[in-house]
């Protein structure tokens, strides 16, 4: 059993987002980078499956050299080896092409991703790779069990969940509560230093989109406070001023 987990290297969820160079580049100044929270759920579940089934676990990132600490963290959490495709992740198609190429060479049984990245929030890469490989892609997956070659999953749908079954190989885009985030321990951190991290060049340069400029949303005006003993006033304002009732 071979498992691949694809991880993003993204700004911490508390980061203030800013741009530089005439709003054409993300401003990394003072920003802390983390494993994407959804990818972290995928990784946590993959580590559990690895222990349960004796599987091998590879982590993959498409990114420049600066993402290596993030890959090392994934190794410390429990992955066996890492692959970095040495390129800026230009768009979802670009990333999907790289992941599909690695997957074709290595025949993974299960590919786990996050439901979406938290920088570009596309929720697209897993579906694209699934189509490129001709295998099912299921997302957002909140529960995943393996029973022989059958995968039993729960998928979140609007207003509830849906239980499904499919055969390996497949791709799952994961979210909570599939597993609890894992924090690397000292032993994990030590062993991560010597685990293999392979750097490969991209196989294709194709993109479908490119960003010209970034913008921030307009600043919010000050809050209008209403006295707690005059709740009817709030309802009046919502109706007549905000016109939302």
């Amino acid at each position: 059993m071979k498992i691949l987990v694809c991880i993003t290297h993204v700004p911490d969820t508390t980061s203030k987002i800013q741009f530089t160079e005439n709003n054409t580049k993300f401003d990394k100044n003072g920003v802390q980078f983390i494993i994407g929270p959804y990818d972290d759920y995928a990784l946590a579940r993959a580590v559990e499956l690895k222990e349960q089934l004796g599987a091998s676990l590879t982590v993959l990132n498409v990114g420049e050299a600066e993402t290596e600490p993030t890959l090392r963290k994934a190794l410390a959490i429990g992955a066996d080896d890492a692959i970095r495709i040495n390129a800026f992740p230009k768009d979802s198609l670009f990333v999907a092409n790289q992941i599909a190429a690695i997957a074709k060479q290595n025949n993974y049984d299960l590919i786990m991703m996050g439901r979406e990245s938290i920088d570009f929030n596309g929720g697209m890469v897993h579906g694209m790779v699934g189509e490129m490989l001709g295998i099912p892609s299921i997302s957002p997956v909140m529960k995943l069990e393996i029973d022989g070659d059958t995968v039993k999953m729960a998928r979140e749908i609007e207003g509830g969940k849906e239980y499904l079954e499919a055969k390996l190989p497949l791709i799952a885009g994961c979210q909570e509560p599939i597993a609890e985030w894992k924090i690397p321990n000292m032993r994990g951190i030590m062993s991560a230093r010597t685990k293999p991290l392979q750097v490969l060049e991209p196989v294709s340069d194709e993109t479908a989109t490119n960003v010209t400029t970034y913008q921030l949303p307009p600043a919010k005006g000050a809050v209008k406070l209403i006295d707690k003993d005059n709740v009817a006033e709030l309802v009046k304002l919502l109706k007549n001023e905000a016109k939302v009732l």
Partner: peptide
């Protein structure tokens, strides 16, 4: 993008 914290003008090619 960035979970609603920003916008990107994107060209589709």
């Amino acid at each position: 993008i960035y979970t609603g914290k920003a916008f990107a003008e994107t060209i589709v090619n």
